[in-house]
């Protein structure tokens, strides 16, 4: 009986953390769908790494650890990093993947330097900034959940408003431009939505592994459906599932960083989807191949018999 009451008491913190993780999992899952379909899976990685110095600078400037301020700093840095990548690709002969790598490592290195400097100053308030590296979901409070809910909700609503335009942008950019859609503006809009999804997850999942929260749910969702609408919905569900299970596991076991745990949960979902999803799953493919081979063999036998009869 006593066990039960501690469980219930523990549950309040866990519930807050769980809700936060579910929200950020679904937001990053839904928006990550677009990154995956545009073959920009690594863009999320660049954004989340580029966001790190923003957190440090925001803290240095304000001395506060209010989530909204840190998230804002992260968002600005992440956004600048992305714009930098886009302009490097447009203005120089450097290719997309190289530009990505340059920006990612430069920003991340700068962020690490700043964080070390902050730690050296011995500012008592600084404890906890390093959770942004690997994530610590246990640090999520009710006000963080509110921030995630509001900003994430706005991002999803914007995605729904521009659904048709974003869909065409991702599927056929040339045609979209030919009918007058402002490709570059839509591109920046979509990237900004990704930035929001990423910075919201930094506290819980961490800069190093946040991109997995964009990519894994979408990859898993693609296995189960051929409709964009359903894919976005499923990716949101998978993201929430991975978020919740990862946070709960990491919160109940002492001091395991949440980021890696959530990512492992997401990996399980991806693994199961790749293996067992109908139509695209490996198991089904194998069964279909076998049937095919059997069918072909029967047909070939039939033909052989026919030609033998004819020649007799």
């Amino acid at each position: 009986m006593e066990n039960l009451s501690t469980l219930i008491h523990l549950d309040y913190t866990l519930m807050i953390v769980g809700i936060g993780a579910a929200l950020l999992g679904s937001v990053s899952g839904a928006l990550g769908t677009y990154a995956v379909l545009r073959r920009q899976s690594l863009l999320g990685d660049a954004i989340s790494h580029a966001a790190l110095p923003g957190i440090a600078i925001a803290f240095l400037l304000t001395g506060s650890k209010t989530p909204l301020i840190l998230v804002l700093g992260a968002a600005i840095a992440g956004w600048l990093g992305t714009l930098l990548i886009m302009s490097i690709v447009r203005l120089t002969r450097i290719k997309y993947d190289s530009a990505l790598a340059i920006v990612l490592s430069t920003f991340f290195g700068f962020g690490l330097v700043l964080h070390t400097l902050i730690q050296r100053t011995g500012n008592a308030n600084q404890a906890g900034l390093d959770t942004f590296l690997f994530g610590q979901a246990a640090t999520i409070l009710a006000r963080d959940v509110l921030t995630i809910g509001i900003l994430g909700g706005i991002a999803l609503i914007v995605m729904l408003i521009f659904w048709k335009e974003l869909k065409l942008l991702v599927f056929d950019e040339g045609f979209a431009a030919s009918i007058g859609l402002p490709i570059r503006a839509l591109d920046i809009l979509l990237t900004s939505l990704l930035v929001i999804a990423i910075v919201l997850g930094l506290q819980a999942v961490g800069a190093v592994l946040m991109s997995a929260m964009l990519v894994a749910p979408a990859v898993a969702a693609r296995q189960w459906t051929n409709r964009l609408r359903l894919m976005v919905f499923l990716a949101a569900c998978f993201g929430a599932l991975a978020g919740v299970s990862g946070t709960i596991i990491s919160s109940t076991m002492s001091r395991i960083p949440t980021g890696p745990t959530i990512v492992l949960c997401a990996t399980v979902v991806v693994g199961l989807s790749i293996a067992f999803a109908p139509n695209r799953g490996l198991v089904w493919n194998r069964i279909r191949q076998q049937r095919h081979r059997h069918g072909l063999k029967t047909a070939a036998d039939g033909l052989l018999k026919q030609s033998q009869q004819r020649s007799e």
Partner: peptide, 10 residues
């Protein structure tokens, strides 16, 4: 060939 025909749509 300019688009990805594996895009989830009909």
């Amino acid at each position: 060939g300019s688009v990805d025909w594996d895009f989830p749509t009909n």
